[in-house]
């Protein structure tokens, strides 16, 4: 584990040094790709820039709202599809058709229909991020142990109670994985929608703003660094949360092995 960490750090450091040298020696045009040190300096400066922080806030607000709505829609829908075979059959063609549509393609339509930027962003985020949650919920529900369900039934619980007390907790770790995948998708869609909309603020909007102000690649890359850091942080936090809440899931797998 430690070795892996050291090697990973070496790789990153090596890349940073190479990029720095390439830019400093004029191997690449410093106006196009500025030295890493400059980009990182810009990124640090951005962290203290109230205007930029406002854009980050705007992005995170849309992201969180969109993801929350996606969870609120996809989990109950997944429970319905996963527990009622006729709903599954009725919705399957529709899901199979809608799911492969690249969500980014829907952004112009959303801009046309929804004048409010937050609404517009939220709707495309919901559309894009509900699929991994929905699919994971449906499949996890199919995999719930029949013995676990029958046990609760044998104590006289009705099907709804079995769904609530057995199927949902059993499926929860897989639903959480779906949410984590959805969280990454949601961030991509948030920034994309901001870039395309060209209004309403956000990190994506900020990058377009910088672009229109002349060749400021260092500032642009500084903003991109933050978009990346936010993505990593979100993933890190969700993984930690899953480990905490679903300790029984991983611990059981280890004991059983």
């Amino acid at each position: 584990m430690n070795r892996r960490l050291v090697r990973g750090a070496c790789g990153v450091a090596g890349f940073l040094v190479l990029a720095e040298v390439a830019s400093r020696t004029g191997l690449v045009d410093p106006d196009h790709i500025p030295p890493v040190s400059t980009v990182l300096l810009r990124a640090v400066q951005l962290a203290a820039d109230v205007e930029f922080l406002g854009h980050v806030g705007t992005t995170l607000t849309a992201w969180a709202l969109g993801l929350a709505v996606a969870i609120a829609v996809a989990v109950p829908l997944g429970l319905l599809i996963g527990s009622l075979p006729w709903v599954d059959k009725a919705t399957q063609p529709l899901v199979e058709f809608l799911r492969p549509i690249p969500s980014v393609a829907l952004i112009p339509l959303a801009i046309m229909l929804l004048p409010d930027t937050l609404q517009m962003k939220t709707s495309v985020i919901v559309y894009a991020s509900m699929w991994p949650i929905l699919i994971n919920t449906v499949y996890a529900l199919r995999d719930v142990d029949p013995v676990a369900k029958e046990t609760l039934r044998s104590f006289g619980f009705n099907p709804f109670a079995v769904l609530w007390r057995v199927s949902l907790p059993s499926a929860a770790p897989f639903i959480a994985t779906g949410v984590r995948v959805a969280a990454a998708t949601a961030l991509v869609l948030t920034v994309s929608a901001e870039i395309i909309a060209g209004r309403g603020g956000g990190i994506g909007f900020y990058t377009m703003l910088v672009r229109s102000g002349g060749i400021n690649t260092d500032l642009l890359l500084g903003a991109i660094v933050w978009a990346g850091v936010i993505g990593i942080l979100i993933n890190f936090l969700l993984v930690r949360m899953e480990r905490r809440v679903f300790r029984w899931h991983s611990a059981r797998a280890e004991v059983g092995a």
């Binding site: 142990d145 013995v147 676990a148 046990t151 057995v166 907790p169 679903f246 029984w248 059981r252």
Partner: peptide
């Protein structure tokens, strides 16, 4: 019979 499946791990 199958206690590991009939008890709830959570």
């Amino acid at each position: 019979q199958d206690y590991s499946r009939s008890l709830y791990p959570w």
